[in-house]
């Protein structure tokens, strides 16, 4: 039997984005762009998810939510920041309630810039996330084994 690869599932959380990136992320799952052809499924349950896609910056209210979702996800996991706001805070960086990009609360692996990020660049980010996930899977398994052995 040929080698079976895992399909990483994706969880989308809207930080404090203006919706522009959110609807582009949703548009990625629809027929014109169809990100599911890479084996990615958009799920709503953090426990099922491998890739965490965040749009929008972090504010004082949602910082805990983002951290909680990140901690609920099983290891290994990849974090994808979509949109300029998620990368750095963007146009809202100077607002009093914005702490900054997603990397102020959780480690981010891949940054997708753009205001709003175009579906093509989001797909590019997701494809990179899938590759990185597979990479992480290998090293993570090794680490776990050495931990158990020790």
């Amino acid at each position: 039997m040929a080698k079976i690869e895992k399909s990483p599932w994706l969880l989308h959380y809207d930080g404090s984005s203006c919706n522009g990136c959110d609807i582009e992320v949703l548009a990625c799952t629809t027929p014109v762009y169809d990100v599911e052809r890479f084996g990615v499924i958009n799920t709503g349950n953090p426990m099922h998810a491998d890739i965490f896609l965040v749009t929008g910056g972090i504010n004082s209210q949602n910082a805990e939510v983002v951290k909680q979702i990140y901690n609920q996800m099983p290891n290994p996991k990849v974090v994808l920041a979509v949109g300029t706001c998620a990368c750095t805070g963007g146009i809202f960086k100077e607002c009093y309630n914005i702490l900054g990009g997603v990397d102020t609360v959780i480690p981010v692996d891949i940054y997708v810039p753009g205001c709003a990020a175009r579906p093509e660049s989001i797909i590019d980010g997701v494809v990179q996330a899938v590759a990185l996930y597979k990479e992480k899977q290998k090293t993570w398994k090794k680490e776990e084994k050495t931990e158990k052995g020790a």
Binding site: D14, G15, S16, S17, C18, G20, G56, G57, N59, Q61, N62, V65, I91, F92, E94, C95, Y96, N97, I98, C115
Partner: peptide, 24 residues
Amino acid sequence: YVHRGLESLVTKKDFQEMAYVAER
């Protein structure tokens, strides 16, 4: 959960730039 404090940007961006902020 999405509150950014966008209206406060009027003190930092001038009235022409605010058109871009308002759009967002």
